[in-house]
């Protein structure tokens, strides 16, 4: 029985790992793009500055890109991931009588990865933004007066300082992601919890459900060691 349960949960681990790694793979770069968007200072109406008309004058200050990005980030971070999953997966069928997810070989997983990627990208964008803005302007200015190009300043001066600042909050978020994979069961993906729970119905035993904790702990433990190692690697400077 023990091996049967373990095997079944390991299968769930496979699903969870797929979700975890695909989410990381796509949400990290997307998060960086969103963070640039949220910091955009583009003011297309700035020529209207100083107009008599109060409305036009106000328009001059509007930064459309950062306003839109910040609103999206607010909505995504302000609603539960579980709700987002339900809307994305069941929404089209309920409201439009169409289920686009059938078009994919593994539609459930596809919808799930998509939702996770957008959700986590929003969280990551805030962390990245903190990292970028956390590098003192003096660093960039020092590079400038030394005749370095913008690219050189980014790669040789700011990037590593950014990474150092971003690693601790990122490791937190990534560890949360491990446990958030369990939300996938809401759209009937057999991840770890669902795999363990299924033995309650079929065999009337509860211990497999609690046994799943071991798998989460092992995975998070490995990640903790990894992040600890990365942080130590960058301990040589402040």
């Amino acid at each position: 029985m023990f091996w049967q349960v373990t095997l079944s949960i390991l299968k769930g681990c496979g699903e969870a790992a797929e979700l975890f790694f695909l989410t990381l793979l796509f949400s990290l770069p997307l998060g960086l793009v969103i963070s640039f968007g949220s910091m955009s200072k583009w003011t297309p109406f700035r020529k209207l500055y100083g107009r008599q008309n109060r409305f036009l004058h106000g328009l001059a200050r509007i930064r459309p890109i950062s306003t839109i990005t910040n609103t999206v980030v607010w909505i995504i971070r302000g609603t539960p991931l579980m709700l987002q999953l339900i809307i994305v997966f069941y929404g089209p069928g309920m409201w439009f009588d169409a289920n686009p997810w059938n078009l994919f070989a593994d539609g459930r997983m596809f919808a799930c990865v998509l939702t996770f990627v957008v959700n986590y990208a929003c969280y990551f964008s805030v962390i990245f933004r903190g990292g970028i803005e956390g590098v003192p302007v003096g660093q960039r200015e020092a590079g400038q007066v030394l005749g370095m190009t913008k690219t050189q300043i980014f790669f040789k001066v700011t990037l590593l300082q950014m990474i150092k600042q971003v690693v601790p909050p990122m490791s937190n978020e990534i560890i949360t992601l491990v446990k958030d994979t369990s939300l996938a069961r809401i759209i009937a993906i057999t991840e770890i919890i669902k795999a363990g729970e299924s033995f309650m119905k079929s065999d009337g035993i509860t211990w497999p459900l609690f046994y799943t904790a071991v798998f989460y702990l092992a995975f998070v433990g490995a990640l903790t060691l990894l992040f600890g190692w990365i942080e130590r690697k960058m301990d040589y400077f402040r």
């Binding site: 003192p136 003096g138 660093q139 200015e141 020092a142 590079g143 400038q144 007066v145 030394l146 005749g147 370095m148 190009t149 040789k156 001066v157 590593l160 300082q161 040589y236 400077f237 402040r238």
Partner: peptide, 30 residues
């Protein structure tokens, strides 16, 4: 602009050394 800046050197009130480089690397990087 970048080349023109090289006419001037600048020493800041708050040093602005690059923390991830040694003293020598700070001097030689640029």
């Amino acid at each position: 602009l970048r080349k023109k800046r090289l006419h001037f050197g600048m020493v800041f009130q708050s040093f602005n050394l690059f923390p991830q480089y040694t003293a020598l690397e700070n001097v030689t990087l640029a």
